[in-house]
Design a protein around this nucleic acid. Structure first.
Length: 796
DNA sequence: AAAAAAT
């Protein structure tokens, strides 16, 4: 049989070997034996039905993987998407499996084929794609008893046995056993956030570190944290409020709970009496301001902390802390080392300590001279110090850490006398850059790779959703800088294919987000794999005390830098809030997005992102989606379509909220309002980049106005609230003769007074004034609690 | 709810 099949194998060869021209018959063969053998199934069925599709798909994927855009604009269309959906399956490998099932139908013949693996040649094509499967097939070959495809599965079971290999990894995870311990630790960690468990450890660390005479101060800082945690508690309460809202039936109970909120209960009782509401607001705002201060505390710990601490904590901290705490030091430095934008004038990258090659590449990348945040952090990174960097969205943070990281690696290399050597196979990476999303990791690599290349260093991307083969191959060849996302990086570490023991510099981009639940622990595990005491850089536009956990464990005496005067108020972004009927949301989004220019629409869920995308297309607006339900090639392609201008509208979840840079997005529409002020800032930051102008529009149901006001307060953003119904002009101020709404001065003053009594600052008055436009009060009146709960249900 | 591994 095999021999016979060898000829059969000749079939595949027919394309190459004329001698089998006789085999031309084989083609006929196929025709003659369509359903049966290799000839049959491959020639016809495979080619006609499956093969072609598969090829198309592969080719598309290949193009994508090659970074090319699809040939046709059509791809932006749904049809392609439909195809893509299956692709996602394909990647899962499942789609192909059905195909296989077909093959299996043919397999009866194949069982014959077995003798003739030639048939497999064609399969081999599939196999090429399916590396792992090839293994499976190896198994199959062995399986004489193939008659049962399921036997094949048995081989799979082998595969699984192989997987067990993974399981071995997991055995390695015996480490995990420890991990499990770690997890035990984790639980505590969560507590740690409370800060307690780790703290003892920290206390040890501090003993180690020991400058700790000062650090006792830190301990004070920790005390500060306690308060911070309280700040969070303030926020938490909000979340609680929301929870309560969910529970609203119980609200009556809530009110009981609200013993705390006496004021509120009053409001509700009097509810009709808005004045009371405003009273509520005032207090709330105070809370918000407490939050704000929290932010400022970060900047100016000493003063504000003492001012806002809960009385029970106030004395102790103040007394002990009196302003030496290490954390506070960090915070103080944030303030102390703020750089003035004007200070950068006339400074060049070369002046900052970067080498000529790096400078040249930066120029090629369009960075002729340093932005403030870059001027601030580059020299410090080159010194080898740990750095916390905060620069607003679009201010050039990637280069701020990327360029000096490369330069620093070179100088370290030079110091060790290894400079100028050839690329060493298998050498371990010395720098690690972590990002929260694959797109961001990819984007960072696009900036860092050319810089690294200019000095002979190699980078590689390590992120999920893509076969790991290439990534592993790159690591084996030797890479200097690894840029990626936590999941795959951990995966490869566990597989023993990535060794971080020589990492000398670790960068966390969007560091505060990397400290969020779900990210923090993987990030901690990864950081623990890096060289102890190595340099760490944390960057984010919204860097706050949320990173304290990481700072305490992994950073030593970090320098804190931000750019003075770079707040949202000074930004080039215009903010608007439209109060709408939820049912009109999709139509209004379409109305707003129906324009020239790139528009980014944010949705809270993946499903709604898809829904909106479809709706936009129904309106004849070409749009693509970006969210975690898409396979990576679609994600990459869809984002690329916006970048290239092939499509003007991208509907995304918060996967696109942070870091993603697309030139000339001039409108951001938040179809769903964000829950966190930081999210608002990051989403908004997709526009107005590098000093360009942009608009941000947020759609909210009327019951969300108060929450939105709170959020904007925290974000320190001034935005007018306006009613908007589908079909109404969204930007009336652009029309001639438009008169802006006037604030109700009396009410604003009233609110300010209350605030003034509770908090020293009254500087926010103007900000409040914004939301309190003539329209807003009416809206608030209508914001009945009942309606609110209903709408929230709908919204959430 | 989303993101981050894979299956």
């Amino acid at each position: 049989m095999p021999k016979n099949k060898k000829p059969a194998g000749g079939r595949p060869a027919k394309n190459f070997d004329p001698s089998y021209a006789k085999g031309g018959k084989p083609a006929r063969h196929g025709s003659s034996k369509p359903g049966s053998r290799s000839a049959g199934h491959r020639g016809y069925r495979a080619e006609e039905a499956e093969a072609p599709r598969a090829k198309d798909r592969w080719s598309r994927d290949e193009r994508v993987s090659a970074g090319r855009s699809p040939h046709r604009a059509d791809r932006a269309d749904r049809a392609p998407r439909d195809d893509r959906a299956p692709r996602s399956y394909d990647r899962g490998g499942r789609d192909e499996r059905p195909a296989r099932s077909n093959d299996r139908d043919d397999r009866a013949p194949r069982s014959y084929d077995r003798g003739g693996r030639d048939d497999r040649a064609p399969r081999s094509y599939d196999r090429d794609d399916r590396a792992p499967r090839s293994y499976d097939r190896g198994g199959r070959d062995e399986r004489p008893a193939r008659s049962n495809d399921r036997d094949d599965r048995a081989p799979r079971s082998y595969d699984r046995n192989e997987r067990p290999v993974r399981s071995f990894d997991r055995n390695d995870r015996t480490d995990r056993a420890p991990r499990s311990y770690d997890r035990d630790d984790r639980a505590p960690r969560s507590y740690d956030r409370g800060g307690r468990d780790e703290r003892p450890a920290r206390s040890y660390d501090r003993n180690d570190r020991n400058d700790r005479a000062a650090r006792p101060a830190r301990s004070f800082d920790r005390d500060d944290r306690a308060p911070r945690s309280f700040d969070r508690d303030d926020r938490a309460p909000r979340s609680f409020d929301r929870n309560d809202r969910n529970d609203r039936a119980p609200r009556s109970f809530d009110r009981n709970d609200r013993a705390d909120r006496a004021p509120r209960s009053f409001d509700r009782n009097d509810r009709p009496t808005r004045s009371f509401e405003r009273d509520e607001r005032a207090p709330r705002r105070d809370f918000d301001r407490n939050d704000r201060p929290a932010r400022r505390d970060f900047d100016r710990p000493g003063f504000q902390d003492s001012a806002r601490r809960p009385s029970s904590f106030y004395p102790a901290k103040d007394a002990g802390a009196h302003f030496t705490p290490n954390d506070d030091v960090v915070l103080e430095r944030l303030e102390a080392e703020a750089i003035q934008a004007g200070d950068v004038d006339g400074v060049s990258f070369g002046d900052l300590g970067l080498g000529p090659n790096v400078v040249r590449v930066l120029a090629e990348l369009g960075a002729a001279s340093p932005f403030p945040i870059q001027a601030a952090t580059i020299p410090v990174v080159l010194e080898g110090r740990d750095v916390l960097g905060r620069g607003k969205t679009g201010s050039g943070k990637t280069i701020a850490f990327g360029a000096p990281t490369v330069e620093r690696l070179m100088s370290l290399w030079a110091q060790s006398g290894k400079a100028g050597g050839k690329r060493q196979m298998g050498r371990r990476p010395r720098a690690l850059i972590l990002a929260p999303t694959r797109e961001l990791a990819l984007q960072i690599d696009r900036t860092v790779q050319p810089i690294a290349q200019s000095v002979g260093l190699f980078t590689t991307q390590i992120y999920g959703g893509v076969p790991q083969g290439r990534q592993v191959g790159a690591l084996q060849r030797g890479v200097d800088i690894v840029i990626g996302t936590p999941g795959r990086i951990e995966d490869l570490i566990e597989q023993g294919r990535l060794d971080l023991s020589e990492i000398a510099i670790t960068v966390l981009d969007e560091a505060d987000h990397m400290c969020d639940l779900g990210f923090l622990e993987p990030v901690q595990r990864i950081l623990r794999r890096t060289a102890k005491g190595s340099q760490r850089l944390l960057f984010s536009a919204t860097l706050d005390q949320g990173v304290a956990t990481l700072v305490d464990e992994f950073l030593v005496d970090p320098a804190v830098h931000e750019v003075a005067g770079e707040d949202q108020a000074s930004s080039t972004i215009e903010h608007r809030v439209f109060v709408i009927e939820n049912r009109e949301k999709r139509d209004i989004v379409a109305q707003l997005a129906n324009r020239k220019g790139k528009t980014l629409v944010f949705s809270r869920t993946r499903a709604f992102a898809e829904d909106l995308t479809d709706h936009l297309e129904d309106f004849g607006i070409r749009a693509v989606a970006l969210h975690g339900d898409l396979n990576q090639s679609r994600r990459t392609r869809n984002l690329q379509q916006l970048t290239s201008g092939r499509v003007d509208v991208l509907v995304a979840t918060d996967v696109a909220a942070r870091g993603i840079h697309v030139d000339d997005i001039d409108l951001v529409i938040q179809a769903d309002a964000p829950d966190e002020y930081k999210t608002y800032l990051h989403r908004a930051g997709r526009t107005g980049r590098a000093g360009k102008e942009g608009r941000v529009v947020t759609l909210i149901p009327r019951n969300r106005q108060r929450r939105m006001t709170d959020l904007l307060d925290r974000a320190e953003i001034a935005a007018p609230f306006e009613f908007l119904a589908f079909g109404e002009e969204a930007f009336p101020e652009d029309a001639p003769g438009y008169v802006a709404p006037v604030a109700e001065v009396a009410e604003v003053e009233e609110a300010v007074e209350v605030e003034a009594s509770a908090a020293p600052e009254a500087s926010d008055a103007p900000e409040q004034e914004q939301p309190d436009t003539a329209d807003t009060p009416d809206v608030l009146e209508e914001a009945d609690e009942t309606i609110e709960s209903d709408d929230e249900q709908q919204t959430v």
